[in-house]
Design a protein around this nucleic acid. Sequence first.
DNA 1: TTCGACATGTAAACCGTTACATGATTGT
DNA 2: ACAATCATGTAACGGTTTACATGTCGAA
Lengths: 192, 192
Amino acid sequence: MALRHAVLAALLDGEMSGYQLAKTFDVAVSNYWHALPQQLYGELAKLEGEGLITGREVIQQGRPNKRVFTLSEAGRGKLAEFISAGSKPSFIRDDLLVKVRAAEAGSMIDLVEQLEERAEQARGKIALFEKLLRQLRGDLDEQTYLEESPRVGPYLTGLRGRAFEEDTLRWCSHAAEVLRARHASEGARPES
Amino acid sequence: MALRHAVLAALLDGEMSGYQLAKTFDVAVSNYWHALPQQLYGELAKLEGEGLITGREVIQQGRPNKRVFTLSEAGRGKLAEFISAGSKPSFIRDDLLVKVRAAEAGSMIDLVEQLEERAEQARGKIALFEKLLRQLRGDLDEQTYLEESPRVGPYLTGLRGRAFEEDTLRWCSHAAEVLRARHASEGARPES
DNA sequence: TTCGACATGTAAACCGTTACATGATTGT
DNA sequence: ACAATCATGTAACGGTTTACATGTCGAA
């Protein structure tokens, strides 16, 4: 179970409600973890039950009340434990890569379209990561920030996210180009 | 359910046993999908039941017999369908990135060690991908291969895999360096 | 005879996704 | 009135992981 660790890590930034966490998981965290709101509400309830986080009701005006959660000392302890324990190898699951692998068996046109769509999404994500990094950095240049800021973790993962999306963009564009060229030359060749 | 698609895609390369598939999923496919042997045996049984693949007993000498599976026409049809259907956004899950994000809460030494270990693994994977790509290419240069080979899919996913691991290597090295430097300068600074 | 690679599974526990459900408030 | 955003959940289903289980063969 590692969603719990991702949640605990996110709470290092300060108290958050389930709703806010869901937002965070959609942008900054989406790069290395993903979770639906329902899962987060469930996990938060469990974590509170185990004393790793503490909840607090916040009465709001102009919108519904909410419950915000804070890391407890026990929660910090669990995080430290997790960091020192061995890591499982990461894994990706990507429909689009399965499709490209099986390109010979399906419609090239549809596949190219999906690659271009993904490339477009990657452009959007790159912009988001760039914004995130700028916000974290503030007035400092990157080197100084990496040397001195207490929030070096989120910055480093942001760098990874940006690099990953840049790679995705490059690859999708290239793959789309290759497949398009093959599709164009298909009629011009003798049958295999 | 998308494991089934990954299995069908893998069978485009020809008939394979569950055991061979498990191996494939550990190397070439691991880049975009991951599955344990038990899952593969289960999925193969299901796919055979649905007529998407056909099994055949192979009597071997010098080792245990095995059952190899071949894509059926119905299976090819399912793949074509899958390729044209919309893709879900890909996702990564990576313990190590969660740990880096939470770096402030745990042992920097342990974390740096894990980053370096991961970097080492990435080097290994890059070598594997390079070997895979060379094997696929044979005597052709990359451009010609991409224009003409019928097995362009595996090559393109191989390129993605290599790029991803190169990125992983770069990032792990960089992150380890940043965290090591901070750790070294920790005693020299006043407490925060 | 013990180890490693080959070869295939079952069962239970756990995790994640989809669908469903509710309700307040602000702005159009 | 209606849509969008804020806010929180439950239930059923399906998929994944962990632990267990079995057995052949070749080489050291």
